[in-house]
Design a protein around this nucleic acid. Structure first.
Lengths: 237, 237
DNA sequence: CCAAAAGTGTTAAGCTTACACCCATGT
DNA sequence: ACATGGGTGTAAGCTTAACACTTTTGG
């Protein structure tokens, strides 16, 4: 019959900026990715992205959601988006398996319960990765960095309310380079991505002016700066 | 058995700006998409994107290339890139079929031979489309417009050598809005996307100054303006 | 000489960065 | 008081859009 001998799996690259909580002063905030360690061959002991076989009556997004629910509380995932498909016929041994990858983002203060074989790993220091999962993480990171620049996607990494210095730390960790809090504020405020709540945080034990609190204006993904150039002519008022 | 009952197909949204040749003064240049008309049910008579079943030992890109070769000369396709996956379990009747979509671009002067059931259709005036192929075209168009702004992807739509007014017409058709040739020149020259050849075109029959000819600096896809904002700090020299 | 098409100059507006400076709080 | 962190002001540079103006050709 024409029944294909091909399986389809979904794999999620789930990021969180960890170590941003004021509780722990020692560790710097860093971007982490959710991985689980394989207990069986093939690639026993190596680390895998969460995911698995696509079910018969679900689309890709439902499938990722379902499978991630086994790892983290679904409510923690603030953003989920399709990335590339990996389709090399021999990317995994055995039955041919096509992988659709996703980018998932978990806001910073959340600390979901994890199964015993599952852990957050700093993206800057990944363990040995199974199959082609290493490049998948790299691809997701590239996409995240790009989208931080021209969308409001930061909402999915940040707490509901935050001081600007906290947001700076989060962007710093996610982007991988220094970010000036002053300019971050102005860029995001002019684009109406963040707004002041009116309240302020208490200052820390070492003093300092109390920080104004902000929140993201939308809790849904939005493109904020569509055209860098070649934008349509201005509409006459 | 665990043999899945799911097929995988690839579908290509192939664009070309047609009507840019000076031969035909009557028609304005417009963005067209390559479609073929279904001769059999389901959806007989409606128009489909080129593509088909993924072969057992090919990856997605090879598969699109192979299947497009049946429609157009492969050498004509200057750019091919993965778009989204459409995975609704009931997006087509019969065996469940997951569709991976691609964006393909054909440079302007080329006029490949087409099979009898296949035609170029203006994107602005699409015929009745089969299944979910309509939204796929829309999605590809959105991606094309975005990438024209921050990459050199125009090379895949333009002739190897061209006058600036020709390039303006191409961008105009692809973007869907007016483009100023003056500013297009400056933006693309500063980014080193296009360079002068040194030669000039002959002027048309109605006179006018002869146009300088340009070419794209790279014949490969390249991101030219990565960060609209939140770019890394300047490197000290 | 005139119309047509191409190319150049100029201005203004907007956005982003960098950095100096001022403000509010705890010890 | 003073150290510490937060916030504001400001200037410089770059990028783009808009449009007036000049150049080069054919009739």
């Amino acid at each position: 019959m024409s029944n294909s001998n091909t399986a389809h799996e979904v794999l999620a690259v789930v990021f969180q900026v960890r170590g941003v909580a004021p509780q722990d002063e020692s560790t710097k905030p860093a971007l982490h990715v959710l991985l689980w360690q394989r207990a069986l061959d093939p690639e026993r002991g190596k680390w895998s992205l969460p995911g698995g076989r696509l079910g018969a009556d679900e689309d890709l997004t439902s499938s990722v959601s379902r499978q991630l629910a086994e790892k983290v509380d679904l409510r923690e995932i603030a953003h989920l988006e399709q990335l590339a498909v990996f389709s090399d016929p021999h990317r995994v041994p055995g039955v041919r398996t096509i992988a659709s990858t996703f980018l998932g983002l978990v806001p910073s203060p959340a600390t979901p319960e994890l199964p015993p074989d599952t852990r957050w790993h700093p993206v800057a220091d990944l363990p040995p990765m199974a199959f082609d999962h290493g490049p998948m993480v790299a691809h997701a990171r590239t996409r995240l960095v790009a989208k931080l620049s021209y969308t409001n996607i930061g909402f999915a990494l940040a707490p509901t309310e935050f001081a600007l210095s906290t947001l700076r730390d989060i962007y710093h960790a996610a982007l991988g380079h220094q970010v000036d809090a002053t300019n971050l504020q102005r860029v995001l405020e002019r684009r109406k991505v963040i707004t002041r709540t009116g309240t302020t945080a208490r200052s820390g034990r070492s003093g300092g002016r109390p920080a104004a609190l902000y929140r993201f204006a939308d809790a849904r993904y939005r493109v904020t700066d569509e055209f860098a150039a070649l934008r349509p002519p201005a509409e006459p008022d």
